[in-house]
Design a binder for these strands. Sequence first.
DNA 1: AAAATAAGTAAACATTTATTTACTAATAAA
DNA 2: TTTATTAGTAAATAAATGTTTACTTATTTT
Lengths: 201, 201
Amino acid sequence: MRPKNIEKEEAIRKLALQLIAEDGLENLTMQKLAKAANISPRTIYIKYENKEDLLIKLFVDEVIGAFEKAVLENFSATMDFAVGIHCIWQNCFTYFKNNRHAFALMQYGKSSPLLNKAYKERNITEGQFFTPVHQFAERHAAAGTIKNFPIQIFRALVFAPLLDLINEYFEHTDRPVQVITDELFQSSCDAVIAGILQNKH
Amino acid sequence: MRPKNIEKEEAIRKLALQLIAEDGLENLTMQKLAKAANISPRTIYIKYENKEDLLIKLFVDEVIGAFEKAVLENFSATMDFAVGIHCIWQNCFTYFKNNRHAFALMQYGKSSPLLNKAYKERNITEGQFFTPVHQFAERHAAAGTIKNFPIQIFRALVFAPLLDLINEYFEHTDRPVQVITDELFQSSCDAVIAGILQNKH
DNA sequence: AAAATAAGTAAACATTTATTTACTAATAAA
DNA sequence: TTTATTAGTAAATAAATGTTTACTTATTTT
């Protein structure tokens, strides 16, 4: 039996992310992808059931899965609050700096109903993404270190500005200088932390 | 000369937003749109040059333009910082509550290269969106009320969590109870304000 | 070395797509 | 009322789409 060529599967995933980043998800076609990856369209159907299957696997495994892994690197739910948030921010920033094309599909996760639905279903069937971060938030809320927000609000306050700053970071090609310096990135992180911390009185 | 039927143009815009919200931008076709709006495909081409033109006008005028107008309602660059941010947040929340379908296309603005590019170009050719908010930020930064962040960072800290909370608000159909209550919305706003305020020492 | 089997290719398939053609309808100006 | 002109329709068109068919190739097992 002829074995699957892993390089071809990697080429499909890599080029798919690149084409989506450059041209948009709405302009990705199976033929363009096959051509870019230097394979026959049929080969894609050996690895993936159909286009939706490809997009969902790409999004859930290649993008969110790898993103989660990178964010949780050296992170522990028992960390001090400020240290933990800085760890998450730095990991996230580093990951997307090294995986720029993944960021594009990540963004589609908030707009495309297909990806959105797939993400939710995956969270139900195989356990929540970012569980240690949730435990971290719950622990600090219980200890009174931070305001006792529901996890969705915690996520909005911590992750939304972070991803927006990374998006700004990538836009820097249009501008004479990079706005998002390391120093400003750290100050932004501190601002988010300061807002969530519980004021002792 | 037969005059244009404004109702038909409105139907096109309204149903386009609805179809995008329900099925995704990547699944919107001119024929589906024509059918949904109960008109001939040709009629769309009387009002818009082509599909890209329709999407760009829909995004820039119908979504961002109307959004800006709603956000600036009763807002002034001379407002007290906390009052101004609360005003923006409340206006934004109210607008999207009443224009749910616009929110879907808004989200695509961050992922789709076509819309992204159109937004930037429009900002250059016809003046920046949200100028009063920028003036507001600059004024408070100069006065030392808030940290002296570049406007991009200010935007990330103030708007990103806001839009993420609104997104959470819309997800409530899947859940037994609405997480984003008015009270939590106000507290989130306060947390964002607290983070950006300059600590006097 | 031969057989078995799945991977892979090139080309084709039936649909669907954005857009246009050929026509009809409505209205303002003459 | 007639004419000119644009709005609008139904149907067609050419190109592009996701997917499959018919075939070839590479590799493992016997």
